Structure formats: structure tokens, C-alpha cells
Simulated scan of single mutants.
Amino acid sequence: MVRKIFLPLCLAIVCFYIFPTYVNAKETKENVYQERMNLYKSYETPFVPWYRLAAVDQYERNIQEVRKDIPKRESIIAIQFSPEFWVGELNPNEEDTSPFSIGYFGGKGLDGNGDGKADRNHDQDILYTMATYLSEFGPSEEDFKTALWEYYKDEKIINQIITIQILYKHFNSIELDKHIFPLPVRGYNYSYKGTWGASRGWGGRRIHEGTDIFAGYGTPVLSTSYGVVEVMGWNQFGGWRVGIRDNHNTYHYYAHLAYFNKDLKVGDIVEPGTILGAVGSSGYGKEGTSGKFPPHLHYGMYKFNGRTEWAFDPYPHLLQWEKQTKKGQK
């Protein structure tokens, strides 16, 4: 009798404490997105729309999450300026907040909230300074790229920021974190396991940089994320493959396809569930080679950290996305 009462009571207590925590965490994340968006909208200009500010900010946030040599800015806005940029290279005071002396030494830091200080640790001052800097180059897409080049001096960084800008502008939102499993979780048979790092011999000794999801020929292959199609075509290793870059500095690689979605092309915007093509067994040879291995989707993920792009194991993400996708389809 005591056990019958005790177990339900324990479950009730657990639910009481855990469920509100989950809800509060979700609400907090949504509040951060809203606060961030409000700031972007407050400092956009006719030359610098909000999604350009948001793209630069998101890129900075992305690299801070994976780079140990860059301090992570614990605030709503992630953009960080160097002392030289903010106060001027010849300014003896790296912590200078006086707009007058900053301007005297050729610094770019500005007062964005009207408190008389140009503080590079203040979100409003940071966004106002970035908006002003970008606006100096003009309103066009090419002007924006020129501004990014002058600031970052790296084409790969520019490409990543432009991708983020495209997505934010198209969806009119910065809440683009949803992911799904790359194959339909119902109506088709499939299997997979963690094969990251396994040896591969064709084309020279190398390791397996992804997860193989085995399924029948023609099983639809779906985009796991929001993104922009960066690559489509033949690769001697991956056969017919599609490469998609998302707003988190991640490149998603879908290989060994039987064929592509005929309506898809490089530069297209995709979202979770967009059909990219179908499972096949293409690859390991000249264009059109097929049948050298059982049909499967090779799914890979690569992270760009502002310097290099490196592969990481997608298996834990696939397990999570599979559960989420199944739960969402109940």
C-alpha cells in the first residue's frame, strides 16, 4: 500500500520540478531571440537592414562556440571589436570610452545609447558602431561584401556571413534552429550506426568522415536543416552529392545519391524536410559509377571556425534528430 502511494508521489514531485524547468528554458531562449531581434531592428538603417547586422553577429557567435582562442562574449550580442579598431591603433588607453578621444585617435567606437560613452562591452554601442561601419560602404550586396572584406580579409568568412544573411532575410527570422532526420522516419526501412573514423581504402587510405544510413534505392533524402545549397554534382568519392551550408557555420554533406530533386539547384534555400534527392549507391569512380556498395546515404557534417573547416561526428546529432522527428510526427 505504501509503495503504491510512494511511486506516484515521487513521479509527481519530479514532474513538478523538471517540467517547469524545461518550459522556463524554452521561454528563456525565445526571450533571448526576441531581445536580440529588437536590438537588430533598433539599429538597422536604410543602408544596413537588420538581417546584415544579425548575420555578422551570428557568425561571431558561431566561432566563439568552437574556438578556444577567442573569448566567448556572455551577452545578447556576440560581436567583439579589437581595442585597435575601437579606440584607435595609437591610442594609449585601450579601455578608452570617450567618443572625443576615440575619434581623435582614429578609432571606430561610437556611443549607441546616448550615455556619453563609447563602450565596446555594451551591446547598443557595439551594434551602432557595426551599423555605422557597414553603412560607410553603401547599401548594395557588393558594398556589404566589400565592408566584410575590409573587416575580415577572408573569402570563406564572407561566404558564411552572406549565407546567414540570405537565410535570415528569406525567413524573416533568426529562429532557424530546427533539425530533422535526413530520411523519412515512417514508411521506409533504414538502419545506421556510428562509423565515424572507420578506415576507407578506395582512392587511398583515409577515415570515414560521416555516418552511413542504409536504406532502399529511391528513399527520399531530406535536408536536416535550414540552409543554402552550395554544391551539387559529381564527386569521385561521394558520387552524386549535395552540400548545404547553414546559419551555424555547418556544412551538411549528402552523398551517394541515386538522383537529385529536379527542382533543386545551387543557390536555392532549403529548410528541414526539403527533398534533396534519393538514396543510391553512386560513387567510387568516374561520373555515373554506381553499384559498388549497398545503397545508403552518407551524411557528413563540417564546422567552419573562421580559419579551417573540419569534420565532426554526426552520429549523436542523428540519434537526437531521429527521436525529435518521430516525436513530432506522432
Rank of each mutant, 00 (worst) to 15 (best):
P8T: 07
G138M: 07
S42W: 05
A198Y: 15
Y51P: 03
Y226H: 09
Q165D: 08
E136P: 04
R205T: 15
G239S: 05
G109L: 02
R52C: 03
W50N: 00
P49K: 08
F144M: 08
S42F: 06
W86S: 02
G227K: 02
E35Y: 08
L257A: 01
T132Y: 07
N93L: 13
E142C: 07
L148H: 04
K169V: 11
R61S: 13
V279M: 01
E155H: 10
Q236T: 10
I102K: 03
N189V: 15
V14C: 12
P83F: 10
G107C: 09
I166W: 04
I213K: 00
A12P: 05
A118V: 02
L183R: 02
M301C: 07
F105D: 00
W149K: 14
G273M: 06
K178F: 05
F16H: 12
I244V: 14
L257Q: 05
E74W: 13
E27H: 13
N172C: 06
G283A: 05
A258C: 12
K72P: 02
T163P: 06
Y152C: 07
L276S: 01
Y254L: 04
G204A: 10
F144R: 04
Y251M: 08
L264G: 05
T21K: 11
N113F: 04
V32N: 07
P295H: 03
S101T: 15
I13G: 11
L90C: 09
Q124P: 03
V2M: 05
D123G: 06
K262C: 09
L9M: 13
G328N: 14
L167W: 06
Y152S: 07
V87Q: 02
L318E: 00
F304M: 05
P182R: 06
V242M: 03
L183K: 03
N249E: 12
E287W: 10
H179C: 10
I180R: 01
G218R: 05
R61K: 15
T211W: 02
L319G: 08
E175C: 07
W202C: 04
T219I: 10
I244K: 00
M37S: 04
H256I: 04
M232S: 02
G283P: 04
E60W: 09
V87R: 06
H208Y: 07
R3V: 14
H170V: 10
R206W: 12
F144G: 02
V2E: 06
G216W: 07
L276I: 14
F312A: 03
L276H: 02
G233S: 10
E155M: 14
P20T: 06
Y17R: 12
E74Q: 10
L90K: 15
A55L: 06
A215W: 02
Y43D: 00
R186S: 15
H179R: 13
S135F: 10
M1K: 15
Q320A: 11
T289A: 11
T129S: 09
L11G: 15
P314V: 05
P8M: 09
Y259F: 10
K145Q: 09
P294M: 04
